[in-house]
Design a protein around this nucleic acid. Sequence first.
RNA 1: GGCGCUAUAGCCAAGUGGUAAGGCAAGGGACUGCAACUCCCUGACCCCCGGUCCGAAUCCGGGUGGCGCCU
Length: 308
Amino acid sequence: MLAVCGPTASGKTAVGARLAKKLGGEVISADSMQIYKGLAISTAKPTEEEMMGVPHHMIDFLEPDEPFSVADYVRMARECIDDIRSRGRLPIIVGGTGLYINSLVDNISFDHVDSDSALRRQLEEEAREKGSDFMYERLKRLDPEAASKIHPNNAVRVIRATEMVMLSGLSGEENRRKSRERESPFKPCMIGLTCFDRQLLYDRINKRVDKMLEAGLVEEVRRIYTDFKPKTAFNAIGYKELLPYFNGECTLEEAADIIKQETRRYAKRQLTWFRRDVRINWVDTSNSEQIDGIITNCLNIVAKSEIM
RNA sequence: GGCGCUAUAGCCAAGUGGUAAGGCAAGGGACUGCAACUCCCUGACCCCCGGUCCGAAUCCGGGUGGCGCCU
């Protein structure tokens, strides 16, 4: 298996399709937002041309108001992998959602615990009423080790950890062990794309947002807002940022600046995530016009990895 | 040319004599079921010069820059 990751605007789409062509592969997207239908512009979903005739999986199949999680992702992506392999082709994971990529590549199992939306809602309400101190203190009692690893302010993680214990009766550490019980069948070749010059990456992000605006980002977002109730898909950058503009609280230009800034911060977080994975072979995409050279670098990495 | 106001971190900004709040940005980091989420960590000797005082970002004088008004 080949995996191509990296921050937003680093060139994953272009590289992914080209590598698939060269290697006889198919792309499995690892992007928590491109799974949704109708978010073509806001999530920079690959266009027909960009896909270059290569099959792309895990894209554009969910309604924007449907819930989705890593567990769902891993389950579905595994099916894609099996399917692609059965046809004798190479699965290429391409995406920027680190959690999805790692969970898939490391074969993290989520089967032993469920998620219970009723319990989740109950805990969230409890958090609102009784405060984060109460929530954290209880987690400390239920699962001291998990608590020690989560900052008290991180309400989302505190709730999830609490939920895990309540649902499974197992501590976070025990659950963690179980999730790794089955060793990963993959020996992935991992490629990380980014501009070694951070400023250049940021410039690219800024320009891309401008292009999105020209392509009709505002209309796309407005359409989703009128057709759907706020859900996960609204976490995509571009949605909450455009709301003040729709309400007449700021100009489009101001909203656009926020979108750019949020996207830059997102890219930084992605880099933080990927940098800690020592398996990743980094390729500089600063010179995006030299796409052939970039592909050559990637192919050299693939050759050394012996996955073919 | 005159008069008034002002000068604190990249930006916004508190402090008004006792040894520099806060927010944003930026950088670093964490993150196994909403992850484009959520969360954590990091920063100045207060425009310059001189003076008063045990002690000044805080008071006084001068300089420089900015803002406003007037001629």
